[in-house]
Amino acid sequence: MENSILRRRRHELIIGGIVLAGLALLPVPIKDVYTQNLIIITVLFAGLAQAWNILGGYCGQISLGHALYFGIGSYVSTLLYLRLGIPPTLGLFAAGIVSGLVALLIGWPCFRLSGHYYAIATVVVGEIGYLLFLNWDFVGGATGVFIPFHGESWAQLQFKTAKLPYHFVVLGFAAATWLAAFWLEGSRWGFAWRAVKDDVVAARSLGVNIFASKMAAAALSGGFTGIGGALYAQYVGYIDPDSVLAGHFSILIALPAVLGGVGNLWGPLIGAAVLIPASELSRSYLGGSGRGVDLMLYGGLIVLVALARPQGLVSLFSWQRKQNAPAA
């Protein structure tokens, strides 16, 4: 029993290494700037969805307010850079810490709520954050914040036209979230969360401190999401509440994990690899009509995948299905 778990984990680590190497080598055959941009956004969302997965998947707390952590992260690193001159390479850690703390602050009252009450409370907290930033002149209000270009610099994560540096930066981010999820899966916390998700009463009787474990999940999840936000801000060069804090962004963060497979190491990656290119391509080829065909396809795809593959797209891979089977 013990050995088979260890063997499986070693197995996953090896596959993870292979996937990482494959992604790192993608720019070798792909020189086209637009496709490179698509890959960067896809990998960024894979990382964000993995961060969401820590709270939503492993811990089973369906958060629909992650845009708040993303937005706060993007504002923290950007404002530290513009107001205090702190380079974003340091600022992104500050972004992670602040977002993680905010997640704790929000988790403290919200984890008293269960099920749909929790989900709706996260929507509401996210909306409050959005509205406050929109009306807060100190952070640029509705006008948003421009990040001026001061020449190529790794410390400031600014590159004139090159995509490669960002490719590796977001890959590093996604790999970090994956490793965090991997480590958590095997840790005491990971077991506690699975217990919380499956049966709160049983978990309590096993001596798991449910509240503390949820708080830990929220802090990690929010913190990583904030780092993703900082990277996004530096990549795009402009942030405003509508593009980093609006409610639909929370869904965009959760969706790859849910459709790829929640509580699964590979789900967010697979979900992002399917969803992000699908939405980009449907926009490029159908969006020009302006008649909502792309929305119908996108919505229809979500419904279909959710109904046909409730375990997520990851279940299409047979070796995964075999592993899941005994647990069911």
Partner: peptide
Amino acid sequence: ALSVQFNRGMVQIFVTFGLAIFIRGACQF
């Protein structure tokens, strides 16, 4: 959505969410 064995809570949230996007697109169409 109610008959799925796994992940029922999330499936119903995202099925209705996908439906919302679909209806919005259809009305625009």
